[in-house]
Design a protein around this nucleic acid. Structure first.
Lengths: 196, 196
DNA sequence: GATTTTTTCGACTGTCAGTCGATTTTTCTA
DNA sequence: TAGAAAAATCGACTGACAGTCGAAAAAATC
């Protein structure tokens, strides 16, 4: 019961690496088992299908990517900083650049889409909670918080993930974030500093 | 030079129907040629690959879907009505419901994503032009119009395409559309009537 | 040490995208 | 209009790939 766990972890790790570097569609089960040095039957002893492997790889990634977010959630920060902090923690930085790169490649559409949906699912409740705090404190003035948070995530994903964002895009992002949450103009200006 | 064109059209039409009803991934070239009653070689005489077929099918769909939009663009309507009219013309209605249905199915992620991107590419310039009119007329007050329009499209796609939208979502959409474009509160209230 | 359970193996199957040389049909030209 | 050239069609074949299965090896249990 220990050996098996370890083997599965190893397989997941290999799949993870390969899915990112070559794309999910361009990675064959044969590729994975060759790298792992095991037989086909063994692979299918641990996974129902290639797609289920992807699902589990994505679970791993979501865990990783939301870890920083969860920490910020519990930190002692002003509400606006918390929200923006969480959102920007979702963008892989530094050592995770290859992930970003890979996800943007067209051959990874499916993976990208799946991750985005799962990320939204996971993060909307977290952010909604913080945003509620914000309205309680009178910093924000808005209703339908989860919908608005969802929109905020969609926008930031599009603006920041799809290619290097321009100054104009940051301006719009700041503007729309404030208005989306009903915050005073200037509340989100600190984002500009954060970018660099 | 006439026969060939017609055959290609026929193939595109069959592919279009099949991609929508069973999903791109679940439609094999063999399925298409069987339905068309031709041999494999003939298919590949007209198409480089299955993916290129998809690309051309999407071209067809974009043409179709933006036709109504182009008409509204030239109609004599107030700017806000024009913008909302164009956006809602992109959502297939009535007889096109199956398309919507098919596109939401997870096995059509790739198609959905490709169509969305192409749609945005095509429609942003159209809408940006109208929005510019709006600011010229003093109805809207905003800069960076193309970015804002892009965001507007993203939001409407998410809110209206992903499942049946609620009243709350409409409220938020109206609110955010007004604020995104810098319009007076109430400018977009007419959307509520339009929905039904 | 025997028996049961877990893990591993790899040959095999069926499906599918795409190729290619041969053949038929259409169009052009002398 | 015969005969050459071009366009269109055919289908058997290839190679890649996901997934299956029964048998063997390894580990755990008694």
């Amino acid at each position: 019961m220990k050996k098996g766990e370890k083997r599965k972890l190893k397989l997941l790790e290999i799949a993870y690496r390969m899915f990112l570097s070559r794309g999910y569609e361009n990675t064959s089960v044969d590729d994975i088992i060759e790298e792992a040095g095991i037989a086909k039957g063994t692979y299918y002893y641990y996974f129902e299908s290639k797609e289920q492997t992807l699902e589990e790889v994505i679970d791993m990634m979501i865990d990783q990517e939301t870890e920083a977010a969860r920490k910020i959630l519990q930190a002692d920060l002003p509400v606006p900083q918390k929200i923006v902090g969480i959102i920007s923690s979702l963008r892989p930085s530094q050592e995770e650049l290859p992930i970003q790169d890979a996800l943007m490649h067209p051959e990874n559409t499916i993976m990208h889409e799946k991750i985005l949906n799962r990320l939204i699912e996971t993060v909307v409740p977290m952010l909604a909670e913080v945003a509620q705090e914000g309205t309680d404190q009178g910093i924000f003035h808005c209703d339908h918080i989860p919908i608005r948070i969802r929109i905020l995530l969609l926008i930031s994903n599009d603006l920041f993930n799809h290619g290097n964002f321009t100054g104009d895009e940051i301006d719009v992002f700041i503007d729309i974030t404030e208005k989306l949450l009903g915050a005073e103009k200037g509340t989100m200006d600190f984002i500009r500093e954060l970018i660099r």
